[in-house]
Structures are given as C-alpha cells and as structure tokens.
C-alpha cells in the first residue's frame, strides 16, 4: 500500500515538473514574456502605410520598449491604417505632441513603432491620438527613387506627406 502511495506521489511530481517546464518555456522564452504585464492605456495613431507591422510588435521610446501594438485596422472612410498602441501605465509622462514612426530593426528585421517625445507639458491619456506620424519606409520605394536619381528630393515618406491634423474626438 505504501508503495502504491509513493508511485502516485512520484507520478504527481513528474506531471508537475512537466507543467512547470511548459510554463517556463511559454512565459520566459517566447513573446509572451514581452506582453505588458501590468496595466496599460491605449493611444491611437494613423499611418498611410504600416508596412509589415504586426500585432504585438514592440512600441519603443529611445529604443526602450514601453508597450506593444494592440491593433491594426483600415479606417474605411479615410483609407488609412489606424494603429492602436498599448502603453505601459508606468510610462504615463509621454508628451501629447510626441511623434510616432514605423521603423525597421536592422535592414531586414521586424518592424516596430517608435515614439519621439515632444515638448508639450500635457501628456497622453487613454484614447488620445498621436498627431504626428511617419509611415513605414518601403525598401522597394527607396531603392526605386535612388535608382532614378532623385536623391535630392524629399524623403519618400516624409513627415510633410503624412502629418495630419489631429481630429480629436
């Protein structure tokens, strides 16, 4: 009887160990580790082109991760991409005139959203919209433009193109 009992305890420990390993793999070695753990607030940003920006792509300020992309949808009327950014509650002092841009990490890496802090005394609150945005650089466009010798023209997807007046609700 005692022997049976020890089998059961041993088996229980074994299964627990298996689950612990799975939990470790799932939370420590995958993108789950990057999900904002605590509370967060949402801000919105419009881009004419988001390139390959994916859900859960990081949002960074000065290269440091502050949140992630929570949604990418096409707005039916204005036909531009409406991106929802989920920002950690910890970072609640981001000026509301900060600019957002879709960047690529490295030459061919994944895309992420970078926020460039502005100087306004007011800060972003839940539901606010980023006024100044800069779309994704398309490698093909870049190469195309330089090939036809338009090196002196404006950047292909410059701020001037894209900056849109905020339509605050």
């Amino acid at each position: 009887m005692a022997q049976r009992q020890s089998f059961q305890i041993g088996t229980g420990l074994f299964i627990l160990l298996g689950f612990a390993a799975l939990a470790y793999l799932a939370t420590q070695t995958t993108s789950v580790a990057n999900y904002s753990q605590g509370d967060s607030y949402m801000i919105k940003a419009r881009f004419t082109n988001v390139g390959q920006l994916k859900l859960r792509a990081p949002v960074k300020i000065a290269g440091v991760r502050v949140g992630s992309v929570a949604g990418v949808v096409l707005e039916p009327e204005r036909l531009d991409a409406l991106v929802t950014l989920s920002i950690d509650k910890r970072y609640d002092k981001i000026p509301d005139d900060s600019a957002a841009a879709v960047f690529t990490s490295g030459l061919l890496g994944d895309q992420y959203v970078a926020l460039q802090p502005g100087g306004s005394p007011d800060v972003f609150k839940n539901g606010d919209e980023v006024v100044l945005t800069q779309s994704s650089m398309q490698l093909e466009e870049l190469i195309g433009k330089y090939l036809v010798g338009q090196g002196d023209s404006k950047p292909p997807a410059g701020k001037g193109d894209d900056a849109k007046p905020a339509a605050k609700p």
């Binding site: 799975l22 799932a26 420590q28 070695t29 995958t30 993108s31 789950v32 990057n34 990081p58 994944d110």
Partner: peptide, 18 residues
C-alpha cells in the same frame, strides 16, 4: 533572451510542438 523572446511564438512554436 531578448532575441529569443522577440521571435518565438507560444502558439505556433511551443504549443504546436506539444
């Protein structure tokens, strides 16, 4: 770790393996 966590997905990689 950060490269790993950036590219490995729970569902398509870990759980599919399970």
């Amino acid at each position: 770790w950060s490269n790993m966590t950036a590219s490995v997905d729970v569902w398509t990689d870990v759980i599919n393996g399970v």
